[in-house]
Structures are given as structure tokens and as C-alpha cells.
Design a protein around this nucleic acid. Structure first.
Length: 291
DNA sequence: ACCCAGGCGGGCG
DNA sequence: CGCCCGCATGGG
């Protein structure tokens, strides 16, 4: 148990950083008039609660955290050390990107736990953000370990999920993805060492994570970007596909492979950040087919 | 009622 | 390879 704070340098939009569908296991409370923002999240080690006021990010911890590991957790999750002006310089290639950056200035790509990200993004397939978050909350409350003196629980480990039946997982919001969750839990608590993927490059790590049944090209890219710090990952979901086709290809249908190629040439080494701004801006514009 | 959601694996040609 | 289909479920 403890409490500390750190000062954020550069633009930081905490609300859009966590609401933009990258971390899916957060609880958030909004302050009045947008002046403060409070959040909490469960990890495998404890619960972190944090609040942002101006440039001061204060936070508290419990469980196995100590002052040093809690600080590292915060800096990592929110990529506090990212140089946003330099990133914007690299992805600000056109008017659409400029307006996205203007609208969501300070939105960070967050870096989350590999198992958490794997579980959450398997749940994300053919699903919507609101319901994914509800399912994740249910899984935490059902399978996570209790923490003394806290209403929240730890994020359930692969071992704990492995102990659940497909029927139980289905009932707790996983739907048809339950069999994938089960397989991922078996795999990640057994032959696949998630920590070892940090030492692999993007291509090799992605190939390794795709051995999990239910993890295809898009989910693998999300895990690479949102957990393993691979900024060249460019997840292409329905929104990103649509916005790319609309903005850069005059509405013509393009294959996923071509769009990956396009992104890697346009935003080399920073595809992940470009993708997050494209995705979130496209959604805010409700850039649908029938809009 | 209807459509869609941060897709995927399997089956087909 | 590319294409097409079904899939649990609930929010808009």
C-alpha cells in the first residue's frame, strides 16, 4: 500500500488514452467539468488507482506493488516517456492525420500486460468496445483473486482462466469466443512463455502469438502494439479499413495486405500511433458506410 | 425488427 | 492463395 505522484511532460490526454479501446480492463470516473480524471485497474500484482489533475498524475497501489514497481507500472502503461511532438512530426502526413492529432492531442498508445491484452483482444473479435469491457469486468470479478482491503480483484491469470469450463466462460460474456479463451489460457500457462516474446522482433513475436487459436492477423497486431511495444504493428479492423479506403483510396476497396503495405510506407516505424489516431478519429466522425 | 460490432477458423474453388 | 460463411450477444 502506498501513494505517490509524477509530473507529465508534454501533451497527455488520459481520458482518450484509456477510452480509445486499447486497454479494456479499466474503470474510469470523470471529474466535473473535465478538470480531473480518476481511474483504476487490476493487474496480476495488485490494483492501481490514479487521478490526473493538470500535469500531476497521482496514484496509489496495493497488493505486491512497492513504490518503485508502481512507478514503473505507471510510466509503462501510459508511455509517459514518449516524445509526443516527435511522434506527431512523423505521423502528421496529411490533413486527415493533422485533424486527428488536433482532436486527440495527447492521446497515448498504452502499453499493457501481454496476457491481459491477449485475453481482451480475443474477446474483441466481432464485438463492440462497450460489451468487451463488460465481459472483461465479469471475468475479473468471477475468476480474479481477491485483494484484502479492496473491492477490486486481481486480473485473472491464465491458470485461473484455465480452470473454468467453456460453458462458464460463455456464460460470463465470452460468447462463441469461449473456446478461444480456453485455448489461450492453456497455451499461455503452458508451452508459450509470453515474457519471452519481448526479446523477439515484431515478425517473430507476431508469428508466435498467432499460434493461439483465435488470434489472427488483427488481434496479433493489437497484442504486438498494445503489449509488446512494437510500434510498427498496424492493426486493421473494420474502422481502420474503412477510413483508409475513404481517405486515401477514394472509397475503393483494398485488401488488408495492401493496406499494411500502405501504412508501412507512409508511417515507417510509427504505424501503431498512426493507426490509433486513425481509428479513434474515424469513430468519432462516425465514418460509417451509411452516415 | 434490424444492423452492427477493434475477426476468426474452416471450407470451398 | 482469395472468397464466403457462421458465429453468441447486446447496444443503438
Amino acid at each position: 500500500m502506498g501513494r505517490d505522484s509524477l509530473t507529465i511532460k508534454g501533451p497527455f490526454d488520459i481520458r482518450n488514452s484509456i477510452e480509445s479501446g486499447q486497454p479494456l480492463a479499466f474503470h474510469a470516473d470523470y471529474g466535473h467539468k473535465g478538470s480531473a480524471f480518476a481511474l483504476s485497474y487490476s493487474t496480476s500484482k495488485g490494483v492501481i488507482e490514479a487521478a490526473l489533475k493538470g500535469k500531476q498524475l497521482s496514484y496509489s497501489w496495493n497488493g505486491e506493488y512497492n513504490s518503485r514497481s508502481a512507478r514503473e507500472e505507471m510510466e509503462r502503461r501510459f508511455r509517459i516517456k514518449d516524445n509526443m511532438p516527435s511522434i506527431y512530426e512523423r505521423i502528421s502526413t496529411d490533413e486527415f492525420m493533422e485533424s486527428a492529432i488536433l482532436a486527440y492531442n495527447g492521446m497515448r498508445v498504452t502499453q499493457n500486460d501481454p496476457w491481459e491484452t491477449t485475453l481482451c483482444f480475443i474477446l474483441s473479435q466481432f464485438n463492440n468496445i462497450k460489451r468487451i469491457r463488460g465481459s472483461v469486468r465479469m471475468l475479473i470479478n468471477t475468476y480474479g483473486t481477491e485483494i484484502e482491503g479492496s473491492e477490486r480483484k486481481l486480473f485473472p491469470s491464465a491458470e485461473q482462466i484455465k480452470g473454468a469450463s467453456i460453458e462458464e466462460l460463455m456464460k460470463h460474456g465470452a460468447g462463441f469466443r469461449a473456446k478461444y479463451i480456453k485455448h489461450a489460457a492453456n497455451f499461455c500457462s503452458g508451452s508459450l512463455d509470453l515474457d519471452s516474446l519481448y526479446r523477439k522482433d515484431y515478425e517473430d513475436a507476431k508469428e508466435a502469438i498467432m499460434e493461439i487459436e483465435g488470434v489472427g492477423d488483427k488481434v496479433a497486431d493489437c497484442i504486438m502494439l498494445f503489449a509488446y511495444n512494437k510500434m510498427e504493428a498496424f492493426p486493421i479492423d473494420t474502422w481502420v479499413k474503412r477510413v483508409l479506403e475513404t481517405v486515401y483510396f477514394k472509397g475503393r476497396k483494398k485488401r488488408i495486405k495492401e493496406l499494411h503495405q500502405f501504412a508501412s510506407e507512409r508511417w515507417p516505424g510509427m504505424e501503431g500511433y498512426a493507426q490509433q489516431y486513425l481509428f479513434w478519429h474515424a469513430r468519432s466522425l462516425k465514418l460509417r458506410r451509411k452516415a
